[in-house]
Design a binder for these strands. Sequence first.
DNA 1: TAGATTGTTAATCGATTAACAATC
DNA 2: TAGATTGTTAATCGATTAACAATC
Lengths: 209, 209
Amino acid sequence: MSIFLPDPVVKRLPMYYRYLSTMEQQNKSYVSSAELSLATGLTASQVRQDVYSFGGEGRQGIGYPVSELKKHIEKLLGIHQTRTMIIIGSGNLGHALMHYSEFSEKKFEIAGVFDVNPQKIGSPIGTLTIQDLENLESFVGSHPVDIAILTLPAVHAQAVAQRLYHCGVHGFWNFAPVDLQLPKNAAIVNVHLDESLELLSYHLMHPEI
Amino acid sequence: MSIFLPDPVVKRLPMYYRYLSTMEQQNKSYVSSAELSLATGLTASQVRQDVYSFGGEGRQGIGYPVSELKKHIEKLLGIHQTRTMIIIGSGNLGHALMHYSEFSEKKFEIAGVFDVNPQKIGSPIGTLTIQDLENLESFVGSHPVDIAILTLPAVHAQAVAQRLYHCGVHGFWNFAPVDLQLPKNAAIVNVHLDESLELLSYHLMHPEI
DNA sequence: TAGATTGTTAATCGATTAACAATC
DNA sequence: TAGATTGTTAATCGATTAACAATC
């Protein structure tokens, strides 16, 4: 198992995983780099280089075994194991993610939802009850939590992230429009929706040929 | 105004814009590449190279004028003008984006919401009413629409995107876990939440040092 | 003037692409 | 065997970093 993977390769792993999942459902047993090239928009050469770099194995003259390669990527991504998540902030986005059905299929489970608004604390959300953010440390102390989903206002994100880090939560899926400053062993992935939309605006201004 | 900007630079524009906005609010008039380096995590050299490449101007010995640089990026991104959007799919994510308050402040307006579910059609959503997807073409024909937000099931995304493209909508903010195949003058930005979460899982598996 | 910081070219680094031998 | 396609090294391309002259 390779120690180091370049960041561009890592970022492409989920996409490979998605196409391989689709192909597996279609009972496709082997896929060539040429076919993956067509699906992903990458060059066939890059597909081969990627698979080579992350240690996947194919059969010359035949292609890559779909299920096997999928399982290999699954392990690299660590999505063969179940992850426990909590949601911080029960606003619109928090609610949407609470009910986002893709998660359960993919072994990501939501174990708690927290808010500071007294109006919301105690009210039901899915099969759970919104808890007071005051209880964060005690909850995390008694339940294993892998990932915190941050859907709270930007001004509070950094402080809450620090509290989470200090009680042992090292994974952050951050929807607040700020960059979190945490020790480098924290795993942070940002979903900056405002920036994403601004990027779309740019491409509308500057369409390709 | 530069004709071509490399993709990595374009992707950093929204981040520069965010930091410059914050600094403007703090009444900071000039910012150096060293300060931007600290904030963004990029090197000062890269900040200067970026600004140089997208045609921003600073003052030697002083730094970059915050408001001026912000306005410059604003124009590049095209977010000085108002954009009209419609939402396709009034599920959890569609609802959340409908109420996402960041938009209105930033000149992105939602003009319509569409669904195929007869139970939902006709019911209110914010200040609007959910419309039948059948009415898509007639609505777009009589209202200017810049961007379609796709929050519908993956299996229907491609077909609806094609309908939209053919009636003149060329901007797609795609939340469905598929890659859309459209003519290359279409502007597509994907928000693949499942892939984003899988990437986080990878980083949890392989923390930095 | 001295100090600070940009503007801009050149050097370096790393990612992508090309090529083709290996082999199924 | 002939054809197809991977595995792997080398070449190329482009992005980042370094350097320093220009100038505020």
